[in-house]
Structures are given as C-alpha cells and as structure tokens.
Write a protein that binds this DNA or RNA. Structure first.
Lengths: 158, 158
DNA sequence: AACTACTATTGAGAATGTCAATGATTGATG
DNA sequence: CATCAATCATTGACATTCTCAATAGTAGTT
C-alpha cells in the first residue's frame, strides 16, 4: 500500500470537501424559498412519487436517522408543501405526498439548485460527469434499495 | 436541459451521500485511536509539514470556520499529538506541529482510514479513481491555495 | 391472546456550523 | 512616533445536525 499520500489527495477528504462546497451553494440558492438542502431533498423525493414515500424510506434514501425525517417533514407540512397521508395498506406508515404548492416550489427549487451546481460542474466534460455519477452512485448506495417492502436492517450506521 | 432528473441521480445529492458513507466508515475506523475524521485531518496536515501549519490555513484547507479549528487543536494538544508553537516571523500565528507521538498515531490512523476506504473504492478501476480525484479537486478547491507559511508575496501574490 | 418486528415520534446529549466580538499583533499611513 | 486598519487566534452564543435510547401504535405470527 502506498500509504504516504497527502491528505489533500485523499479521495475521502476530497469527497467531503467537494460535498461541502456544493451543498453550501445549493443551500444558499434555496434560501429565498425558505428551504435547505435537506428539506428540498425530502420535497423532491415526495414529489417524484405521486403515491407518496414513507418516512422510513426517506431516511434510507437520504442516509439519515428516521428521527431526523420527522422534523424535516414537520417543516414542509407546516409550510403546506407536503402532507402526511395514512397508508391504507399499513397504518404504521405515513405517506409523504407533495401538495400542489409543493410541486410548484419543488420545480422552482430544482431550477435554482441546478443553476447553482452548474457553476461547479460546467468545467467538466459531460462524459466525465456521467462517470462521476456512476462512481458516486456505487459508493453512496452499496446495494439497490427496493421500493416496496423494507426487509433490510435499515438502521443506517452501526 | 436536464431539469427533470430524479434527485437520486443528482450529482450534488450523490456527492453528499457518498461523502457521508465514506466519512462514517472512516470515523468508525478511527474510533479505536480516539480520533474523528476532523481531528485526523488536522493531525494529518500538521504532520505533513515539519514547519507546522497555522490554524488559519487549516481552516482554509478543511473548509471550516477558524473558530472550529481551535477546539480540534485543543483536543489534539491535550492528547499530546500536536503542539502550538509560536511563529517567529509573525506572532499572531500559532504553528500546529505534530509531536513524535502525533506522527506515530497519524501513521496508524492513515492505514486505518485507507483500509476502511478501500472497501468503497476497490470496485472502481484505478484510472477512473484518478479522474474522480481530479474532478473532486477541481470542485473542492476553486483556486489553488499557496503553501507559504508566512505572507511571502514574493511570487504569484494575489 | 401473547409475542415479535416495524413505523413514527420524542427527547437527550454530542458534534458541527455560523456569526459576532475581543485581545494581541502586524503593516501601513500620517 | 502615533494612529488606524487588517489579520490571527480565541471566546461565546446560537442554530443545525447527528446519534441513541425509549415509547405508542400497528402488523404479522404463533
């Protein structure tokens, strides 16, 4: 193992650093809408599936503790962007569904985020970006998360 | 216009997600040494330059507020891994220098982190990793940070 | 019914991020 | 030399985020 590379070249460090930079600018771009990166993510996922998403699944998708999702949904709900609908098939679940207003804001938010992010990625050729996406997906999601039943031990960190 | 891609394909989201995954495992691997990712980063940077690093520079390197560095250095100092040495050329600065023990721990820590990270990156071909590093560097560091300890505006001052 | 497993929720405590203010020091200006 | 602005480390306050344990409600099983 060539264990003597400077930290500034370490992939984990660069990952964290780049993530911070991008998240910061995204957060700044969302501020006018009263959203943060986290709440935007919840809104986006909720808006992608008209059937709604359970909070448990949101937590798994975002790599958060389920308890964190509660507050995020609380905010979005009190802002009228999403609703908590009971799941007819399993009343333990609460399906997070974007309202009409939620969809509008989500659209606007996505444009803002895209615009902010393009500033960081425009220097990189499209083909490389696709590779980057592929690698990050691989690292971020060790195994595909099924959408239906969650039989996984989804406690996140252990 | 790629304005309608799912969030799970968004580069910023994937970046944040991958960063979290890698940081978590790195943090876990460092726990036995009493280090976290942050304190390890400080220790690593301090150990890379025998002349030491100012806290201001550490903050810039790591993308932190200077006030955050204070606590990190406090911990490392009380653990005997680094020392705060006065800068002869500018007494406002405090040069963070790794102790002998600091160097030993840093070595051990680096091996642990590398081992933990290899689990995430080993599936990716070496060439792609190099591209990944290059892209991340570009995103993470908008402009190269000069390494001069003092305010040597001899060449390339800006 | 009893039991186990799962979901959302709450709460506590630690870690992290952000921001303003301060003392010590430096460099530049008058 | 005296003064002023800028820089560095530090402190403190405050919000956000992370991590964990515990709980009520529900589901599936036996």
């Amino acid at each position: 193992m060539s264990t003597n590379h400077p930290l500034a070249e370490d992939l984990g460090f660069l990952l964290s650093r780049a993530s911070g930079v991008v998240a910061r600018s995204a957060s700044a771009s969302l501020a006018p809408l009263g959203l943060r990166v986290r709440s935007y993510s919840v809104l986006a996922f909720a808006g992608e599936d008209s059937a709604g998403v359970t909070q448990r699944r949101l937590a798994a998708l975002m790599g958060l503790d389920p308890s964190q999702v509660v507050a995020l949904v609380d905010d979005l709900e009190s802002s009228g962007l999403v609703t908590r609908a009971p799941d007819p098939t399993d009343r333990r679940n609460k399906l997070i569904i974007a309202t009409e207003k939620g969809h509008r804001i989500r659209e606007e938010a996505q444009q803002r985020v895209d615009r902010a992010q393009s500033g960081h990625f425009d220097g990189v050729p499209q083909q490389h970006l696709e590779q980057l996406r592929s690698m990050l997906r691989r690292i971020a999601i060790p195994e595909e998360v099924p959408a239906g039943s969650g039989t996984e031990s989804a406690s996140g960190a252990q």
